[in-house]
Simulated assay, not measured.
Amino acid sequence: MNFTFKLFLTFNSTSTMLIVYLIKERYYLLFLEKFPVWISYIIFLLIPLLLTIISLWMKRFLSRDDINCELLNVEEANNVFLPSYLGYFFVALGVESTETIMFVYFIVFIFTYLSQTLYYNPLFLLFGYKFYYIMTINNVKLFIISKKEINTTKGIKFPRLRRINNTTFIDEEE
């Protein structure tokens, strides 16, 4: 299940590149050819949204974990990924052919999948999740996806985490 969950996270994290390209090239869904093209664009946008909902549902099948030790540092990571994400947009806008975007997307998808912390999905923000880097007392830096608002390291515990990989976790607490 972890493999499938990571595939969903990777696609959700990178799919906007494809959507921007499809919109730039004015692609539309053939079964909607009699409707305005923006209807297709909305459907393109709904696909990663639906897959994000599915991945949030799938998190229950990941292994359980917790972090109950003292934390040295907490750093909000919501804005850390913005340059990378904007890079996806600029690549999609600059690519001239469908073959090229597919090749570039494949490379980005593989690198994102193989990375340990690039499961940043901006659609999680719509569901109230925030992204944090935390440093444990053992000097281990972890990436946490949580709905908690964290402003201090004092008393912060994560008793209900799901492990995505060795350095990335998603919090189940509301």
Rank of each mutant, 00 (worst) to 15 (best):
M17H: 13
I19K: 11
I19G: 10
Y21R: 11
I23E: 14
I23W: 15
K24R: 15
K24G: 02
E25L: 07
Y27T: 04
Y28M: 11
L29W: 04
L29A: 09
L29M: 10
L30G: 08
F31Y: 10
K34H: 04
V37L: 13
I39S: 00
I39K: 02
I39V: 11
I39F: 07
S40E: 06
S40D: 01
S40M: 09
Y41Q: 06
I43S: 08
I43N: 06
F44E: 01
L45H: 10
I47S: 02
L49K: 03
L49I: 13
L50Q: 03
L50S: 12
L51F: 08
L51S: 07
S55C: 13
S55K: 11
S55Q: 15
L56D: 05
W57N: 12
W57D: 07
W57A: 09
R60K: 15
F61C: 05
S63Y: 08
R64T: 13
D65C: 05
D65H: 01
D65S: 12
D66I: 13
I67W: 02
N68S: 09
N68G: 11
L71T: 04
L71S: 01
L72G: 09
N73C: 10
N73T: 13
V74F: 02
E76C: 07
A77G: 00
N78S: 13
N79C: 06
V80A: 06
F81D: 03
L82I: 14
P83Y: 07
P83L: 09
P83A: 10
P83K: 02
S84G: 07
Y85G: 01
Y85H: 13
G87E: 04
G87N: 07
G87P: 05
F89Y: 12
F90Y: 14
F90A: 15
F90V: 15
V91P: 00
A92P: 01
A92R: 03
A92M: 07
L93D: 04
L93A: 12
G94M: 10
G94Q: 08
V95I: 15
E96N: 08
E96T: 06
S97T: 15
T98K: 14
E99Y: 12
T100L: 10
I101K: 00
M102E: 02
F103D: 13
F103R: 15
F103G: 15
V104C: 02
F106P: 00
I107M: 10
V108Y: 06
F109H: 08
F109S: 05
F111A: 13
Y113Q: 06
L114S: 11
L114F: 14
S115K: 14
S115F: 08
Q116K: 14
Q116I: 14
T117G: 02
L118M: 11
Y120H: 11
Y120Q: 10
N121D: 15
N121K: 12
N121Q: 13
L123N: 03
L123P: 05
L123S: 05
L125R: 13
L126C: 08
L126P: 01
F127D: 00
G128F: 11
G128W: 06
F131L: 09
Y133K: 11
Y133M: 06
I134K: 06
M135H: 01
N138H: 13
N138F: 13
N139G: 04
V140T: 15
K141W: 00
K141L: 07
L142W: 00
L142F: 01
L142R: 03
F143G: 01
F143W: 04
I145L: 07
I145M: 05
K147N: 01
